[in-house]
Amino acid sequence: MKLFGPLYERTIALARHPRASLWLVLLSFFEAIIFPIMPEVMLVPMCVAKPKRGFWFATISLAGSMVGALVGYFLGHYAFEALKPVFAAVGLLHGIEAGITIVQAKMAQSPWAVFTFLVLGGFMPIPMKVFTWASGIVGVPLLPYIASMAVGRGKRVYLLALVVRLGGERAEETLRKYIEPVGWAATVLVVGLVGWLIVRAHGA
């Protein structure tokens, strides 16, 4: 069953839309708080469609993510208990609680141990919202938190922009050719990571 190919073609068309940059910023913002789709699914096609503007697209995506990360942090700090039923309804509660357990363990070491973990976590295909809410709930100091979000997400978006910029048309042809296996592999990986977080949370 072909799923990711048609989605890729549709996203490429959207990436060429005059308001694509605005949609990318909004997607990056909401993904850091609640939305399940990572901004890379729009960022990569936008970089492919306009390679010379790739670093600009990465920058505005990072800016949207950073604002969303701050909103997610403060919502986690002040509103998590009230919003627990919402997260349970959309299947995110276990993941966030698992994130809380991990962040608490890192906090017991030092705030900068949390920084290192969040930087590494920002490069994994785990929804950013798990870390933004967990950090706010646990009370990670704001300076290490902001720095880790900027470095963790920044290295992802700029690396993607660089790969597409260097690869040019070949990058687009390769992505188009292997979009189905790559898409399904990423899906399996994300599901596996979420399952691991849930098991870890129950075992804690």
Rank of each mutant, 00 (worst) to 15 (best):
A13E: 15
V194T: 02
F57K: 03
V163E: 06
I12C: 09
G76Y: 00
M46R: 00
Y73V: 08
L166A: 11
G95H: 04
K129L: 10
V114C: 13
R200Y: 15
P125F: 11
F80E: 07
V164G: 04
G154F: 07
P144L: 10
P45T: 03
E180M: 11
A82Y: 02
R19M: 14
V130H: 00
E169N: 10
V190M: 15
V188F: 06
R10A: 09
E97T: 04
A201N: 14
P181D: 10
H94T: 14
A161P: 02
G72S: 05
L159D: 12
R170Q: 14
H94M: 13
F29Y: 11
L118C: 12
Y178R: 04
G122M: 15
V114H: 05
G64R: 05
G64D: 04
M38A: 15
H202V: 10
V199S: 11
A82S: 07
S148I: 02
I96M: 03
T11G: 01
A98S: 13
K52W: 11
A58E: 09
I33E: 03
L24E: 11
P127G: 06
L189D: 04
A147W: 09
W23E: 09
P39M: 06
R170S: 15
F74K: 11
P141H: 03
M149V: 13
M149Y: 04
L75V: 07
L43P: 06
A32R: 00
G152D: 06
L24Y: 11
A32E: 07
Q104C: 06
R176N: 04
V191G: 08
V140F: 04
V48S: 01
V67L: 14
P36H: 09
G68T: 03
G136Q: 00
G121N: 08
G167N: 02
Y145E: 08
V86A: 08
H94N: 14
G121F: 09
T174S: 05
T116A: 15
A15F: 00
L120F: 12
V163Q: 05
L143F: 12
S21C: 05
V157H: 06
A186E: 02
K177D: 08
E169C: 07
E180K: 10
G167S: 02
F35A: 08
M124A: 14
F115R: 07
